[in-house]
Write a protein that binds this DNA or RNA. Structure first.
Length: 647
RNA sequence: GGGCCCGUGGCCUAGCCAGGAUAGGGCAUCGGCCUCCUAAGCCGAGGGUUGUGGGUUCAAAUCCCACCGGGCCCGCCA
């Protein structure tokens, strides 16, 4: 049996045909495209439209002329060529031969079917999720996690060595606030899920600090006659007081305990600052406290991510960059470049100058007139800022990687640009060129703005809970005969799959509005639909006693249009994964999987498999169903979604 | 003010980077299909100025320009 992937098959088909014509036509044939409809064949060329004007011939006449001269006698996979549609040259595949190649490849390669190793295998770091360890992963972060994880899987399918990194932002004010509150509460043992517990402490502490700060500020402004500012502050205070009331009603005990503790403190704000400084300086007490709080929260993240099937190879602490001296080293080296300057006591990085001097604007997709804002590297007190630390972190990531992909919201576009320019400034042009900002748009929740400080967010956990609950209802209704344990397992992977698919299947560039309807849909273009299709294929295969040998399958009997399109889709699968990897587009995999499942279900409804006659047709269909099973399972795996054998 | 992203039937969405044949789907609506491998399914119907206006082209949802609407960024926040 031929262990050639069908992707190679298609390439071979293209090369074989292309080699036969003049160079001009050859160029065009290398760009053969898929026609919009199967009635126009499997490959098409619009070459005749391009050149007909210059030649003074009608496109269709030219097309007919060319078709005349094509000799297909030695062609393995092309059965027919026609001039159609006013000038298109359409190629029709020898479906039996293509079926044999595609189906046998799929069944032989099995798990590996669809993976086409890249010409150059790269070591790639995909940094994603990286939620600050101060509150649970919410639905907006979930989009990041799911996209990042599927990107990693897609790149692995291209043979790249992928490493998934989680950047733990434990340095700075937010971590200090939650640690401070946690300490005031007497370092309590977490109640409930650890990250939710930490999230509560964070909003409580943050809210009480904010109210105290606003009150103080209002007092000092009262003396002046800045009425406008006073009104603004008062509004802000009113808002936070109502946030406090809301938090108090949800967490009465913690609220009063923290309030009591904080009232005894003269200047809590100063203590938080002290904690920040202590942590940055590596003070043991501060380290113990903040790390403890982060670990509690991260434990919650691990639970959530594990449930979602998302894993990491490396958990990178931002603080370790600080303590190891990597950040100060990085700043020192930046200072040696001509691209930094002091302004009012703070160190600034002149991103604009780097772009101008190294003539990078065009390649970065920027207009010449656009002036890139400078980046503040250090505060007046000498402490660093987030993006500054990210420069050092990028260098660390590049120590073990040829390419670094940061899955970061598009609102950080400018910061990511400045980061890249900093690498150029430091002389790491190659690294800078291989630093990718994979940007995705926001997830909005209708009705309110998510806010960690206000304790307002829809968590990834509750979304999965609800989806699984719904899935359980469905499973119980549709498959009451299954035993309880199996029902639970199936609803788990169906519910989680539905949520993940909802994010993977939409273009990352588009903003999405979170609605339950969106993630709880179990019909049609959803993960459950794909999983159901897979289960159906498995169900057929389960009923065959013996293994079907390829020799008994007669692929020339697979003549129905729906069989034809399924076969072509099996053959196309490897190309889809290549395209998804080259363009970093997870949603193309979802798109393909849906189309594929749709065709399979049409096939399933229209044609018998096990009862098909004669034997050659039956076995051919069984082999096709097996290939379908493999393609569906592999597609789902690429998206990080489980493929159940029954549901 | 400057920059970036988004704009496709009532709602959601694919195609846009690498322009080609009647703009694919899904939800909702309506009408059919379980003596046959799982009906989370299948088949069919209606519903569109692809935000608007120009331009390039034999050909524009796709490329270019302008404008409109929505979002984001331009912090000694992350």
């Amino acid at each position: 049996m031929e262990a050639v992937s069908s992707h190679e098959g298609v390439q071979r088909l293209r090369r074989a045909e292309a080699a036969r014509y003049s160079s001009r036509i050859e160029d065009s044939l290398k760009r053969l495209e898929a026609p919009p409809d199967p009635q126009f064949g499997e490959l098409t060329s619009s070459f005749c439209f391009e050149v007909s004007k210059n030649l003074g011939i009608k496109p269709i006449e030219l097309a007919e002329e060319i078709v005349e001269r094509i000799d297909l006698s030695s062609s393995r996979l092309v059965g027919e060529v026609k001039a159609e549609g006013g000038g298109y040259i359409n190629f029709y595949a020898k479906i039996a031969d293509l079926a044999s190649l595609a189906i046998n490849s799929a069944r032989h390669l099995d798990q590996a079917f669809g993976t086409v190793e890249a010409e150059r295998v790269e070591r790639i770091v995909v940094e994603h999720t990286s939620v600050n360890p101060i509150h649970p992963i919410h639905i907006g972060h979930a989009r990041n996690s799911v996209l990042g994880d599927s990107l990693a899987r897609i790149l692995e399918a291209r043979g790249h060595k992928v490493s998934r990194h989680y950047y733990i932002d434990d340095v700075g004010r937010q971590s200090a606030i939650v640690a401070y509150g946690y300490n005031l509460l007497g370092r309590p043992k977490p109640e409930g899920k650890p990250d939710h517990f930490i999230g509560t402490i964070y909003s409580l502490t943050s809210c009480l600090l904010e109210i105290k700060r606003l009150k103080g500020e209002i007092e000092s402004v009262k003396g002046t006659h800045d009425k406008e500012r006073l009104t603004r502050l008062q509004q802000s205070l009113d808002e936070w007081v109502s946030v406090a009331a809301d938090l108090e009603s949800r967490h009465p005990e913690l609220f009063s305990k923290l309030l009591d503790a904080m009232e005894k403190i003269e200047n809590p704000e100063e203590e938080v600052s002290k904690l920040i400084r202590g942590y940055e300086a590596g003070d043991e007490e501060a380290k113990l406290l903040i790390r403890e709080v982060c670990q509690i929260c991260l434990e919650g993240f691990r639970q959530t991510l594990k449930r979602a099937g998302i894993t990491f190879d490396s958990w990178d602490w931002e603080s370790s960059l600080l303590w190891s001296g990597e950040i100060s080293e990085c700043i020192k080296r930046l200072k040696e470049t001509p691209y930094v300057f002091y302004e009012g006591g703070v160190l600034e990085f002149d991103a604009e100058k780097v772009a101008r001097v190294l003539k990078l604007k065009r390649s970065l997709g920027l207009r010449e007139e656009y002036e890139i804002p400078s980046l503040t590297l250090t505060r007046a007190d000498g402490t660093t800022l987030y993006t500054t630390r990210d420069i050092a972190y990028s260098l660390r990531k590049f120590r073990g990687a040829d390419r670094v992909i940061n899955v970061v919201g598009m609102e950080q576009k400018l910061a990511q640009l400045q980061l890249k320019l900093a690498l150029y400034a430091l002389g790491y042009s190659e690294e800078a060129g291989n630093l990718v900002h994979f940007a995705y748009n926001m997830v909005r929740v209708p009705g309110y703005r998510m806010s960690g400080r206000r304790g307002r967010y829809v968590t990834f956990d509750e979304v999965m809970d609800e989806a699984v609950r719904r899935a359980y209802e469905e499973v119980s209704k549709r498959s009451p005969h299954l035993d309880e344990g199996l029902k639970r397992r199936i609803s788990e992977l169906v519910g989680v799959g539905a949520v993940k698919y909802a994010f993977i299947s939409t273009d990352p560039a588009k903003p999405v509005t979170f609605t339950w309807e969106r993630v709880l849909d179990f019909e049609r273009n959803t993960a459950p639909y794909l999983q159901y299709s897979h289960a159906r294929a498995c169900s057929i295969l389960r009923r065959i006693g013996e293994v079907v040998e390829d020799v008994e399958a007669d692929y020339s009997l697979l003549r129905e249009p729906v069989e034809r399109s399924l076969i072509l889709l099996v053959a196309k699968f490897p190309e889809v994964l290549v395209e998804a990897a080259e363009n970093l587009k997870p949603n193309t995999v979802a798109e393909f999987a849906y189309t594929f499942a749709d065709r399979f279900n049409a096939f399933y409804a229209a044609l018998p498999v096990l009862k098909a006659e004669p034997r050659g047709l039956r076995d051919g269909r069984i082999a096709l169903v097996d290939a379908v099973r493999i393609v569906l399972r592999n597609s789902l795996r690429i998206m990080g979604i489980e493929a159940p054998e029954r549901m």
